[in-house]
């Protein structure tokens, strides 16, 4: 097959830990096959080579936290036929979106001696707040399995299969004992989007929401259950306020608890 017919892939980074794009390099068994099926046209973490022009698909990691990045994402959109966000930062704003609920002017001197050198927006926002996003892959980090599915689906020209059900369903499928019922462990698996294969309950701990809210989550009912376990409102607020704190369902439930 002539190289010029291969789709061109670009990988972009905004505010993030690099973990989601690292997931691509962590696909040790599939990486060379992926590189055979597509042209990696821009992926600075992996290559200094760069193919200019348009990209068939852009994978975007990270959230928008400064004015420069708010402009940069528009350029990425212009040059990309399909734009897919990868991970909780790009999809919901990430853990750094905790600043959305605080005074960023108060945050800066906690970390930096010269606040005047720091240029940051008051918020950390998902890519979809700035440009049209064609598909979102959840997770902190994303699932390698879903990433390979996403790339395969793109190459085949079909829709990726990434189910929207809850972690709770996966737990039942794995035959796990319910950590909340059996051990009283706080778990937000009932309202959290699948993708991890119910990892935490399989390690005897409650889900803490890496994949963000599932479709139509009943967070209010779950919070009632968490209160019955003895969690105070501060603790309930915290459990929704991590990597997907800015995802609507978690944000609203978090706000209900102070």
């Amino acid at each position: 097959m002539a190289d010029k017919k291969k789709p061109r892939l670009a990988v972009w980074k905004f505010a993030s830990c690099d973990g989601c794009q690292l997931s691509l390099l962590d696909c040790e068994d599939e990486l060379l096959a992926v590189a055979g099926a597509i042209d990696i046209a821009y992926f600075p973490e992996a290559t200094r080579g760069e193919i200019s022009g348009r990209y068939d698909v852009s994978l975007v990691e990270g959230s928008v936290t400064n004015a420069h990045d708010a402009e940069r994402i528009k350029e990425v959109r212009k040059r990309s036929n399909v734009l897919i966000t990868i991970g909780a930062c790009a999809t919901a704003g990430g853990i750094q979106a905790l600043k959305n609920f605080a005074d960023v002017k108060e945050y800066i001197p906690v970390v930096y001696a010269h606040p005047e050198y720091i240029h940051t927006l008051a918020t950390s926002t998902p890519i979809s707040d700035h440009v049209k996003v064609d598909f979102e892959l959840r997770g902190c980090p994303i699932s390698k399995k879903q990433l390979v599915e996403l790339v395969s689906a793109f190459v085949a020209g079909r829709k990726p299969v990434t189910p929207p059900h809850s972690v709770c369903i996966d737990c039942k499928l794995r035959g796990n004992v319910c950590v909340m019922v059996a051990h009283g462990a706080p778990c937000i698996g009932p309202v959290t989007h699948t993708g991890c294969d119910a990892l935490c309950p399989s390690f005897n701990r409650g889900c803490f929401g890496c994949f963000g809210p599932k479709e139509t989550p009943n967070t209010k009912a779950l919070s009632g259950q968490l209160a019955e376990l003895g969690m105070d409102s501060k603790a309930i607020k915290r459990i929704y306020s991590t990597f997907n704190v800015n995802a609507e369902a978690f944000r609203e439930e978090s706000k209900r608890h102070g």
Partner: peptide, 29 residues
Amino acid sequence: PPRFFEAFLRGRSYMEASDITARICGICP
């Protein structure tokens, strides 16, 4: 871009620090 981990760790539980600070780096969590 700065992400202000030291600032938003304040008020979190001591049990959460390992899960939260892991997110500083995907290569060496």
